[in-house]
Design a protein around this nucleic acid. Structure first.
Length: 590
RNA sequence: GGCUCUGUAGCUUAAUUGGAUAGAGCACCUGACUACGGAUCAGGAGGUUGGGGGUUCGACUCCCUCCAGAGUCACCA
């Protein structure tokens, strides 16, 4: 790459001119408002040149120009040396990438590192909501990005299928369900089970109110709530594997899985392996024993097991209860080791909300202390909560944006807009249905993924998600325009003439396209799909501007038409590839 | 209270990791189809980057301090 060549040349220049070896060469893209392609920041060099700004800049510039014929000219503005690279260079660069299939994407080899990405990991007592959507989209997208950066990827989730929460739904269903099933009620299975989870809370609240009314304290009332006691009994019954309980549990979970799989299907999400907590919740204990003998953990007089992480700036943490049963982190230790045994991964990513930042810090420290080398390659992909204007979403209180509802709403909005714009005459009914899906989901996915994962998202259900501006449909539209050009093309595409004169805008687009491989690598290293989204938007915006102001097919000069068509088609390919990294499909027309 | 994260235009957000005049979208105002798709494009208005201090040629970015919000600090998951 030219930037590397330049950097070395600049080092040579400084060595020759000032007799110093210098390794703080700061090169950056030239900002649009100035003339040039690459800019050298002169300030850091002043300390070794001992000359004035302009003189230093000029001396280096002259040296560069003399030694690199691709430099056409330069200008110096306030300590910035802007270097103009010849058009011919950029055209040649484009010719190079134009011949590459799947430009930007690195194919993994068998021996490439394996990344295990965990995401989704729902509870089975309620349907998915917008928070889960963010989790799923992030996990799915980052898996695609890591894969495109040349790694092997396996997607896994751990389904939280046991515990007090599902017992609550089970009890409420038993008490007031009257044998209702997804079939008899026409409800999606996960919604049906979720309904009884909410029902449980209602009954419990009512009981607590009554007990408080009869003179008990809030805490006593909670302990004495009949349905609450029944739920705890059911958990015990589940743990001792009583048949009736297990049967009911299996039945209701299967309803939930049916429901989930429909939602996953709509979102286009699949996993390579599912782990079930009911199968892993006892794991980890033997590892604790091992840790005890190594002195990593210690036992208190009541029999509970702890780790002291105060040296790491954290607290003491309980690992095993005094009755010998495990806590959440015990299972997580066990599951991590199980996964390593299953996959021998090189890296593992946990896609989990930022409320668990502390938990994962502790987990990784523990794994390290026990001595697992791979623990240093574990990463918590932490993301901000999706909040409503009214505050946090809470399933128990019914203040959630349901995933299925939201998806349906997006699709029907897409349909309405399409119809308003009168754009679907040429499509069959099933084709248009597919199209609305594609656009609605594109809008939703892009809306979520363009935001930096760290940041929380404020979602106002009354303020519907946009379809104009920096949105998924805007990019899909750009792509559809390019496909339209392709369909219309009036010439046969031939070799690009490397000597053509290109416009400033065309050069901008070439430069942007050349960035694509780096963008994938950076997004992968930083676990940030938002970087991909930003890049695509830039690309689409540049293209629309170009399209609006430059005749692509209608120019007299067929050599130029050929070039512009190739440029457009390549840009379309890059848009498609990069949108695919966000899990978004592209329409040929819309 | 301790620790972590966040704070950028009315709203949603970006900023090449310390670089040039903080860049976009929505909403608002003005323009552009006898040109390849107007879900588009061009332009306008809108900013003390939460406040204050410091580091330096240069700070949204680093340090200190204060303010506001969120999360977490369970023998819960």
């Amino acid at each position: 790459m030219i930037i590397l060549k330049l950097e070395n040349l600049i080092k040579d220049a400084i060595l020759k001119l000032y007799n110093v070896s210098f390794n703080n060469v700061q090169l950056q893209k030239t900002r649009k408002e100035f003339e040039g392609d690459i800019t050298l920041v002169i300030y850091p060099i002043l300390s070794v040149s001992n000359k004035k700004l302009d003189i230093t800049a000029k001396e280096i510039a002259e040296y560069l120009k003399l030694n690199l014929d691709k430099i056409e000219s330069y200008n110096i503005v306030q300590g910035f040396l802007n270097i103009v690279i010849s058009n011919e260079y950029w055209v040649n660069q484009f010719i190079n990438i134009n011949n590459i299939n799947d430009f930007g994407v690195v194919k993994a080899k068998k021996e490439s590192p394996l990344y295990l990405v965990e995401f989704s990991s729902p509870n089975t007592n309620k349907p998915l909501h917008l928070g889960h959507i963010r989790n799923n989209l992030l996990g799915d997208s980052i898996s695609r990005i890591i894969k495109a950066s040349g790694k092997n990827v396996k997607k896994v989730q751990i389904i939280n299928d046991r515990g007090i929460h599902i017992c609550k739904s089970m009890i409420a269903w038993q008490e007031s369900g009257k044998n209702e099933t997804p079939k008899s009620s026409g409800m999606k299975g996960d919604h049906l089970v979720g309904k009884y989870y909410v029902e449980f809370e209602k009954i419990k609240q009512k009981e607590i109110e009554e007990l408080v009314g009869s003179g008990l304290s809030q805490k006593q009332a909670e302990e004495n709530s009949k349905i609450n006691i029944k739920a705890k009994d059911m958990l015990r019954s589940w743990e001792s594997k009583e048949k009736d309980t297990i049967d009911l549990w299996k039945k209701m979970n299967s309803w939930v899985y049916d429901g989930f799989s429909k939602t996953y299907k709509k979102l286009g999400i699949v996993f390579d392996k599912n782990y079930y907590e009911s199968e892993t919740y006892l794991l980890g204990k033997n590892i604790i024993e091992d840790g005890l003998s190594k002195g990593v953990f210690y036992k208190k007089s009541d029999g509970s097991v702890w780790i002291d992480l105060s040296a790491e700036g954290l607290d003491e943490k309980l690992i095993l209860r005094s009755d010998g049963t495990s806590v959440y982190i015990t299972q997580d230790i066990g599951t991590a080791v199980l996964r390593y045994d299953d996959f021998k991964f090189s890296n593992m990513i946990y896609t989990v909300g930022n409320e668990q930042n502390y938990h994962f810090k502790v987990l990784f420290h523990i794994l390290k202390k026990i001595g697992y080398k791979w623990s240093k390659n574990c990463f918590h992909l932490s993301y901000g909560m999706v909040d409503l204007p009214s505050g946090k979403m809470k399933s128990r209180e019914g203040t959630v944006v349901d995933a299925d509802d939201l998806i349906e709403e997006m699709i029907s909005t897409a349909k309405n807009i399409s119809n308003d714009l009168g754009k679907k005459e040429y499509l069959s009914e099933s084709e248009s249905k597919k199209l609305y899906n594609l656009i609605g989901l594109g809008a939703l996915k892009y809306f979520i993924l363009k935001v930096d994962p760290k940041k929380k998202i404020l979602f106002d259900p009354l303020d519907s998600i946009d379809f104009n501006g920096n949105t998924g449909p805007f990019i899909q539209y750009t792509y559809a325009r390019i496909q339209s050009l392709k369909r219309k093309k009036l010439i046969n595409i031939s070799e690009i003439d490397p000597t053509i004169i290109i416009s400033k805008k065309e050069k901008e687009i070439i430069k942007l396209l050349l960035d694509f491989p780096d963008v994938i690598q950076e997004a992968s290293q930083k676990y940030a799909p938002s970087l991909i989204a930003n890049y695509i938007y830039e690309l689409a915006k540049e293209f629309n501007n170009f399209y609006q102001n430059t005749p692509i097919l209608n120019d007299q000069n067929k050599i130029l038409v050929n070039f512009r068509l190739c440029l457009s088609i390549k840009l379309g390919e890059v848009i498609k590839t990069s949108m695919n990294l966000l899990g978004i499909s592209m329409p040929d027309r819309m």
